[in-house]
Deep mutational scan, measured.
Amino acid sequence: MALNTPQITPTKKITVRAIGEELPRGDYQRCPQCDMLFSLPEINSHQSAYCPRCQAKIRDGRDWSLTRLAAMAFTMLLLMPFAWGEPLLHIWLLGIRIDANVMQGIWQMTKQGDAITGSMVFFCVIGAPLILVTSIAYLWFGNRLGMNLRPVLLMLERLKEWVMLDIYLVGIGVASIKVQDYAHIQAGVGLFSFVALVILTTVTLSHLNVEELWERFYPQRPATRRDEKLRVCLGCHFTGYPDQRGRCPRCHIPLRLRRRHSLQKCWAALLASIVLLLPANLLPISIIYLNGGRQEDTILSGIMSLASSNIAVAGIVFIASILVPFTKVIVMFTLLLSIHFKCQQGLRTRILLLRMVTWIGRWSMLDLFVISLTMSLINRDQILAFTMGPAAFYFGAAVILTILAVEWLDSRLLWDAHESGNARFDD
């Protein structure tokens, strides 16, 4: 018995066209964080690309023209004298008006014999932002004059995390709450300039795509075929072959399989920071003279006294001054041990922890910024005066060393310790 099946006739004509040209192939790229070699397709503007294995951002879609970056830099340069030299806060102490600005706080630190601690604050609040705007201006002028731009481009990517104007702005709020127990506070004209400078700096850093600047100024022929001998440069993120001198053909720094002496430098910085954190938390970090009496505060006791007036601000200072430094030390110690013992479990967790400490590390400088600003506000000789204690130097040095330890660690070593050939990683 035959089955009668109805015929289905399409209502619209289906047209099949042959592909007349070869589909576009992607360029081969190595991930600078996990060293995976993959094919990167062509990316349009405002599109980002991520590593298929570790999800690290390979290409950032946010990109401004150099002219727009230069305009932002010149605007920031105009704001800087007002943000640093004009009063941020006014207080009335014992019937006398006192003005506080950024430069005055750094000068008070240096004047009291601790120039190293003052230079830490100076670099993060004044030096690094000033280098940022002058570097962008150098790129703008240098591109037109045919100057060598490689050193500036190499420095810009590392400079971003040292620009800490946003953290200093939080420190202004913390210092205001600490001082309000002794005097009446009012915002100064410099505060508005400083807030504007923070906003412009944040926007500029978020749109400063150094890798795209490398592509514009020093374009290189990408690798179009897969080759395990391809290496990625950690300076400019170019994937290719080393030249005859073993250097990256684009930025001219040595092109090595792994960062040289990464573990040794990381261990040295980490152990030194552990040693410095002990006096930083045991010795007094601030000293207040009130009517001839002397009151010393460690980091913890200062947080407890701050909690009596504002528990939320005390929580912020606790996280930045105690929780973050010790968390960074514990995480980095764990990561280094996992590399030495070739741990194969929990790779995803370790990668996330490394990215976390990379982002939060700079916030530990908050305590030094609060001390710097408070020193310029309260300084009335023996009637009422505020000065920093010996722990300030140890704390600042420990924070900087932990930042350097994270920067010096080559994250690809975590993958080397893991089993080879993993296309995915999980716990």
Rank of each mutant, 00 (worst) to 15 (best):
N4K: 10
T5I: 05
T5H: 08
I8T: 07
T9G: 08
P10D: 08
K12W: 05
K13G: 07
V16D: 07
V16K: 07
A18R: 06
I19E: 10
I19N: 09
I19C: 06
I19P: 09
G20E: 06
G20T: 06
G26D: 06
G26L: 08
Y28R: 11
R30W: 00
P32C: 08
Q33N: 10
L37V: 07
L37S: 06
F38L: 08
F38G: 05
F38H: 04
L40G: 08
E42I: 05
I43H: 08
S45E: 07
S45Q: 07
S45R: 09
S45L: 08
Q47F: 06
Q47T: 05
A49N: 04
P52F: 06
R53V: 07
R53F: 08
Q55V: 08
I58Q: 03
R59S: 06
R59E: 05
D60P: 06
R62Y: 11
R62A: 09
D63F: 15
W64A: 15
W64M: 10
S65N: 11
S65C: 05
S65P: 04
L66Q: 04
T67R: 10
R68Y: 07
R68K: 03
A70H: 11
A71N: 03
A71F: 06
A71L: 05
A73Y: 10
F74C: 08
F74L: 09
F74T: 09
T75R: 00
M76D: 02
M76F: 05
L78E: 01
L79H: 11
L79T: 03
L79A: 03
P81T: 07
A83I: 03
A83L: 02
G85A: 04
W92S: 02
W92T: 03
L94K: 00
I96R: 07
R97Q: 03
M103I: 04
M103Y: 04
Q104I: 03
Q104P: 01
G105Q: 14
W107N: 15
W107C: 11
K111V: 02
G113S: 11
A115S: 13
T117Q: 02
G118E: 11
G118M: 03
G118W: 01
S119P: 05
F123Y: 07
C124M: 10
C124H: 02
V125T: 07
I126H: 07
A128I: 01
A128D: 02
L130K: 06
I131K: 01
L132M: 07
L132P: 03
V133W: 03
V133P: 09
V133D: 01
I136Q: 08
A137D: 03
Y138M: 06
W140V: 15
G142E: 01
N143I: 15
N143T: 14
R144G: 08
R144V: 08
L145P: 02
G146A: 06
N148I: 04
N148G: 11
L149C: 15
R150T: 06
L156I: 12
R158L: 15
K160C: 06
E161Q: 15
V163I: 13
L165T: 13
L165K: 09
I167H: 02
V170T: 15
I172S: 09
V174C: 15
V174D: 00
A175M: 00
A175V: 03
K178G: 00
K178V: 00
K178R: 01
Q180I: 11
D181H: 02
D181V: 01
Y182L: 15
Y182H: 07
Q186I: 13
Q186L: 10
G188K: 14
V189G: 06
V189A: 11
G190C: 03
G190S: 03
F192Y: 10
F194C: 11
V195P: 06
L197T: 10
L197A: 04
I199Q: 08
L200D: 12
T201A: 09
T202K: 15
V203Q: 04
V203T: 14
V203H: 08
S206T: 14
L208T: 07
L208W: 10
E211D: 14
E211N: 14
L213T: 15
R216V: 11
P219C: 14
Q220P: 12
A223S: 13
A223H: 13
K229S: 13
L230I: 13
V232F: 13
L234I: 09
G235F: 06
C236K: 00
C236F: 00
H237K: 13
H237W: 12
F238Y: 12
D243Y: 12
R245A: 10
C248R: 01
C251R: 00
H252V: 06
H252E: 05
I253E: 15
P254V: 10
L255F: 15
L255K: 13
L257C: 13
L257H: 13
R258H: 09
R260C: 09
R260K: 10
S262P: 07
L263E: 13
L263G: 11
L263K: 10
Q264R: 02
K265P: 04
K265W: 03
C266Y: 01
L270T: 12
A272E: 01
S273Y: 02
I274M: 13
L276W: 11
L276D: 05
L277T: 12
L278M: 14
L278K: 05
A280V: 06
N281R: 00
L282G: 12
S286Q: 00
I288H: 00
I288P: 01
L290C: 06
L290H: 03
N291M: 15
N291S: 15
G293F: 09
G293S: 12
G293L: 11
R294H: 06
E296R: 10
E296P: 07
T298Y: 07
T298M: 12
L300P: 03
S301R: 08
S301P: 04
G302S: 01
G302D: 00
I303V: 15
M304Y: 14
L306Q: 00
A307E: 12
S308Y: 10
S308R: 13
S308V: 13
I311R: 07
I311E: 15
I311G: 15
A312H: 14
V313W: 07
A314Y: 11
A314N: 00
I316E: 00
V317A: 04
I319E: 11
A320W: 00
I322C: 13
I322Y: 05
L323W: 06
V324H: 10
F326A: 11
F326T: 09
K328N: 00
K328L: 00
I330R: 01
V331N: 07
M332Y: 06
M332D: 03
F333D: 07
F333A: 10
T334Y: 15
L335C: 10
L337Y: 15
S338G: 12
I339C: 10
F341R: 13
K342N: 10
K342V: 14
C343E: 12
C343D: 12
C343Q: 15
Q344G: 13
Q344F: 13
Q345D: 13
R348N: 12
R350S: 06
R350A: 11
I351E: 10
L352A: 11
L353G: 14
L353Q: 07
M356E: 08
V357A: 04
V357P: 02
V357T: 10
T358A: 14
T358S: 09
T358V: 13
T358G: 12
W359V: 13
W359P: 01
I360M: 07
G361Y: 01
W363T: 04
W363R: 05
D367K: 00
D367N: 00
D367A: 00
F369V: 04
I371V: 04
S372F: 04
S376F: 02
L377T: 09
L377Q: 02
I378G: 00
I378C: 01
N379G: 01
R380G: 01
R380M: 01
I383S: 02
L384G: 02
L384Q: 00
A385Y: 01
T387K: 05
G389E: 01
P390K: 07
A391D: 01
Y394Q: 02
Y394R: 03
F395V: 01
G396L: 02
G396C: 03
A398M: 02
L401P: 07
T402N: 03
T402P: 06
I403W: 01
L404R: 04
A405S: 10
A405E: 03
A405I: 11
E407V: 11
E407G: 11
W408Y: 06
R412E: 00
L413G: 09
W415K: 10
D416N: 13
A417Q: 08
H418T: 08
H418K: 15
E419V: 09
E419A: 02
S420N: 07
A423I: 15
A423H: 09
R424Y: 04
R424Q: 12
D426R: 06
D427S: 10
D427F: 09
D427W: 09
